[in-house]
Simulated scan of single mutants.
Amino acid sequence: MCIGVPMKILSCDELVAVCRNDEENRDETVDLSLIGTQKAGDWVLVFMGAAREVIEPDLLESVLQARKAMFAALNGGDVDAYFADLVGREPELPDFLKNK
């Protein structure tokens, strides 16, 4: 299984960027061929050295929280703090399943 890593672009030269992985405090050279040239400060989701998509600012915090929850679960920790909006409520069915 491959898990995408959210990374912030530090600098970009055409289709190659230097990106920062804040979780591991490391920089990595990333191929941007699949998403095109980006600007410094943009966030991208990286799989095996290649950026696969740009992470929009409104989605970034959700992606970072989900990864923190995954690491907490792998270490036997509590994940509720990372999904506060889901704790204490039942999942809601999509409309097409409500009448079945």
Rank of each mutant, 00 (worst) to 15 (best):
M1G: 15
M1I: 15
C2K: 14
C2Q: 13
I3Q: 04
I3N: 02
G4Q: 00
V5C: 05
V5H: 00
P6H: 01
P6D: 04
M7Q: 01
M7W: 00
M7A: 04
K8R: 11
K8G: 10
I9K: 03
I9C: 09
L10C: 12
L10V: 15
L10E: 14
L10I: 14
C12K: 04
D13I: 15
D13V: 15
D13W: 08
E14N: 15
L15I: 14
L15F: 09
L15A: 08
L15P: 15
V16C: 12
V16P: 08
A17K: 01
C19F: 02
N21P: 04
N21M: 00
D22Y: 11
D22F: 14
D22T: 13
E23A: 11
E23H: 03
E24D: 14
N25R: 07
N25I: 12
R26L: 14
R26D: 07
D27W: 02
D27R: 07
E28R: 02
V30S: 04
L32M: 05
L34T: 10
L34F: 09
I35K: 04
I35T: 06
G36K: 00
G36V: 06
T37P: 12
T37F: 05
T37I: 13
Q38I: 13
Q38C: 15
K39Q: 12
A40C: 13
A40K: 06
G41T: 09
D42Y: 01
D42I: 10
W43H: 03
W43G: 03
W43E: 01
W43I: 04
W43V: 05
V44F: 00
V44Y: 00
L45D: 06
L45I: 06
L45N: 09
L45Y: 01
L45K: 00
V46M: 04
F47S: 11
F47C: 10
M48V: 15
M48Y: 07
G49N: 02
G49K: 00
A50F: 01
A50T: 11
A50K: 04
A51L: 06
E53S: 10
E53F: 05
V54K: 05
I55K: 00
I55F: 01
E56D: 11
E56M: 08
P57F: 05
D58E: 11
L59E: 13
L59D: 13
L59R: 08
L59H: 11
L60T: 05
L60K: 00
E61A: 13
E61H: 08
S62V: 12
S62P: 09
S62G: 15
V63E: 03
V63T: 06
V63A: 06
L64P: 03
Q65A: 14
R67H: 05
K68I: 07
K68C: 12
F71L: 15
A72T: 04
A72P: 07
A72M: 05
A73M: 12
A73C: 11
L74R: 05
L74Y: 07
N75L: 08
G76F: 01
G77I: 05
G77T: 04
D78M: 06
V79W: 02
D80W: 05
Y82I: 12
F83N: 07
F83P: 09
F83H: 06
A84E: 13
D85Q: 09
V87N: 04
G88E: 03
R89V: 15
P91Y: 10
L93I: 12
P94S: 07
F96Q: 11
L97Y: 08
L97K: 06
K98I: 11
K98E: 09
K98H: 03
N99V: 14
K100M: 13
